[in-house]
Nucleic acid binder design. Structure first.
Lengths: 368, 368
DNA sequence: CAACCCAATGAGACCGGACTCACTCAATAT
DNA sequence: ATATTGAGTGAGTCCGGTCTCATTGGGTTG
């Protein structure tokens, strides 16, 4: 009854001893390589079974150099877009025998740097990154230098020459904005959580997050086409918390030249904007038109159903995984930008611009 | 200009050679252990810097036996509850120097078994599992036998004597159901995606998923207290897809004795139920009261705002991580069930039962 | 001045697999 | 009958760290 408690797991050597063969033969039988006679194979497998032998993946990785693990570095799994993409990634990778190490950076470059470093130390076979910044990329160049394949998800940094999987956010933003303009909107707002050098827009602003930069660029381009001058106050950045989004929404609404249409950079920002509008009894779309990036299951359920720019998040994850797997198979493949189809889903939160009312009656706040 | 491309990363031996000291001394200086003279330490660190040396975490893990990695095995990151919990886990673990390997089982036991096995092979230091089944637990006992700490999240399997972090779902379900009963409801429906031996309820049903079993038990208990007999047709299980949820919702609504209140097992099921009700123009709460488990940001945004049973998902992740970390520090700690506070958040989707109408006028379907 | 202590150091074992190399021996080719 | 082949085998190296052990030598103590 004196079973050795927490006995250390059996090794090839243990199996070999039990099967009364050499370590090399046991390894061959277990690893399925080299030449092994039938009786030996049988003995070894029986011994392995008996000792419930399991290979130590660490030891194996050490001399194969392959860890069967992929690092996934994203801003926030909590964001449903990334949640879904992560599932696409993890489903696909698992089917191909890879595990996923997940790192959540909270969109902080320093955390990202650290996460990437640790993953390289752990010898991941490849990385999927949604880079927090397109300005600080030394750690990403480092990945390239290490020779490990990498794929960017949702964002890209063209000069690095890395595979990327994205959606034509700029085009979609342009399209959606054009539609707003056709409906008579001339003042279009945009809110994003993105970390930016200034809280509002300026023509020469440089956004570190390329995917938000694209969204904004599309909006600005469409405005440009229609010779609409964009008031910096309509574009609010640096909104990492619900409270800041709420405050920005209110600030924007109480502008003398408040936007008649508002675009949220993602569903999390959108949710907060909508909540604030609801709290302030601002009617959508009668008083403000609203649309947001990312289609969520609830988008069509709320009142009014929300017009959205939909991205195939799950498929993006799948494609990113496939791209990475392809590159693992053949590192020579030329890097490419994979652009998936997104689309504007028209629902009921966007309407023709309300008839302008006499100045001063708009909003509750007094602006002297 | 003939830089060696993709040069293999520097090792301790390389650093030692460059610094002109022994491998052992280099290792000591880099590892910060043993006795190293100041000049040697300086030389070694300089050499390491020059070669941009990074320790190979695999090699290190091999003889320390610790990988600084925790395995997280859950049903579905896409489910916002798990998404949030995962963030709580990963934030906390990262702060303590641990990485997270994520596995998504889709609630399938075979996938879970496989995931756990691979993680043990990779020598994770501990596991956080949301067990898909409380019936097939051999692989989980295996984890225990391996001596690696494990914590259950959201679910528990008491006989295994494993730490768990949960919410008193049974109590909350009982409370919510009692409230429905007080409002006059006598026919209460329940829908869940959980994999079950039969599609509907029976008193001796055995659910593999303990957290759904608790929810259901709470509902049944409250009905029992009020001497309400539960019609099996009110309880629909085995609803893994949106279509099946939708169909079950419709089937339930067209029963002669259709429930006057419906409880959804989680927000994903709830969303689909609500979408179906909306599509069928069933008014909530005028015609059916509705409530669901898990509070989502959109719960209060839709019309009507949804009454929910809220669980502190993020905090559950944090606590699970802390519990695991504590056990890593001291394996002797007695296993405990950690029960966090959840609560019923009253909003507007629950109302007094509608006045019964004459038989035959209820629902569109003819029941002869 | 001998005895002793301990910081500093290098050689090398070790973790657990993968794999190379040299060798045996029976089956086939000449 | 002899040469050639190759399946089958065991000994031992290697991956890149960690860590033990024995040795050296400057400083302290009796």
């Amino acid at each position: 009854m004196s079973e050795s408690r927490t006995q250390r797991p059996a090794t090839v050597a243990d199996v070999a001893r039990t099967a009364k063969v050499s370590k090399a033969q046991a390894a061959r039988a277990l690893g399925g390589y080299g030449a092994v006679s039938e009786p030996v194979r049988t003995k070894v497998l029986a011994a392995a079974e008996q000792l419930s032998y399991r290979p130590n993946a660490l030891a194996r990785s050490m001399n194969t150099g392959r860890s069967q693990t992929i690092g996934v570095v994203i801003g926030d799994v909590e964001n449903p877009f990334f949640g879904l993409a992560t599932r696409g990634l993890s489903d696909t990778l698992r089917q191909n025998g890879y595990d996923v190490v997940l790192a959540n950076t909270g969109e902080r470059v320093d955390v990202e740097q650290d996460a990437v470093r640790v993953m390289l130390d752990k010898r991941v076979d490849g990385l999927v990154v949604s880079p927090a910044s397109s300005l600080h990329v030394d750690h990403l160049s480092g990945v390239l230098a290490s020779g490990r394949p990498m794929v960017f998800l949702d964002r890209s940094i063209p000069r690095l020459g890395v595979d990327s999987v994205e959606v034509d956010l700029r085009g979609l933003a342009r399209q959606a904005t054009r539609e707003l303009i056709e409906l008579g909107h001339r003042r279009i707002g945009f809110l994003s959580a993105v970390d930016a050098p200034s809280d509002t827009y300026s023509p020469d602003i440089e956004l570190s997050n390329s995917s938000v930069a694209e969204r904004l660029a599309g909006i600005v381009e469409a405005c440009g086409e229609a010779s609409i001058e964009v008031d910096p106050a309509w574009i609010r950045l640096n909104l990492p918390t619900p409270d800041s989004i709420s405050a920005a929404t209110r600030a924007m609404a109480s502008l003398e030249n408040a936007p008649t249409a508002v675009i949220a950079s993602d569903s999390m920002v959108g949710l907060e904007v909508l909540t604030t509008l609801r709290a302030d009894a601002v009617r959508v779309p009668d008083e403000v038109s609203f649309l947001m990036f990312d289609d969520m299951p609830w988008s069509s359920l709320i009142d009014p159903p929300i017009t959205v720019i939909s991205q195939p998040a799950y498929d993006m994850g799948v494609l990113a995984a496939q791209t990475l797997l392809a590159r693992l198979g053949n590192p020579q493949i030329e890097a490419a930008r994979h652009v998936l189809e997104g689309r504007v889903v028209h629902r009921e939160s966007v309407a023709r611009v309300p008839v302008p009312r006499p100045a001063g009656t708009q909003g509750a706040a007094s602006t002297t």
